[in-house]
Design a protein around this nucleic acid. Sequence first.
DNA 1: TGGCGTGTTTTTTC
DNA 2: TGAAAAAACACGCC
Length: 280
Amino acid sequence: MPELPEVETIRRSLEPCLTGRQITGLQIRHPGILLPAAEAFAAILPGLRILALQRRGKYLILELSEDWCLVFHLRMTGKLLWTEDPQSPVPPHTHLIFQFENEAQLRFNDVRRFGRCWLVRREEMERISGLAALGPEPIRSDFTAEILKEKLRHKKNSKIKCALLDQTVVSGLGNIYVDEALFEAGIHPLRTAGSLSPEEIHALAEAARHVLQQSIRRGGTSLRNYVDGLDRQGENQYHLQVFRREGEPCPVCGTPIRRMKIAGRSSFFCPRCQIAHPPC
DNA sequence: TGGCGTGTTTTTTC
DNA sequence: TGAAAAAACACGCC
């Protein structure tokens, strides 16, 4: 679930808690989520200090002293939770606990164990293949329709829904925000990327930026699992236009929202506002 | 109770 | 090379 707005909200919530903190120890309860092996984490981390929190796409990056970095990807159900009460019950599926001065803790929790945590030197961060291959950040001011057009050049026969989920095309979009951006831009998810007009690509670039920034302002979308670093839900789920609204009236034209499987994922769209064929 | 849906990235297949 | 499908995982749901 955590897509760009959720990871950014987590980053912002944890930043005041973690910045400047020294790691005093760690508990590894499930080593399978760690890369490289757990021994390296135990040997290297104690004594290091957290200098800054960065985000790239759906990756959260903790910059540490001595040029080390902790990189997290939460995949679907991963959570990072800050607590200053070490006596608070440790939730099930907590795989990793970082300990800090004054007994504060950062807990990594992930029901489905898809999430990952890497310990790498800053200059070797590019060795995380998914991170190195990420496309442009759609919420940055230098993200333009021209850049999106160029990135879509090699995906001409892909369905636009699939192309936008490809993190090398644009970083940070997932199932929710792709559907919301396609709705806002008036583009049917089954259209091929190569069939989009320059005007449609422009509208899509604007819509992607807009739906992501709106969600960040609302603290992310909490549908099932997502909470920020202080266990707080977001508000964007109350503002979704089409996602998970099958059968409900389109907020623009009133036509019932439809649901369709595309590349194995549920996709939601308005069959009237999002036309299936390119304009003549 | 068992089989499906969930959603992201990596890997495999065509 | 690129598009699509499967695999990784655990749980809730009906």
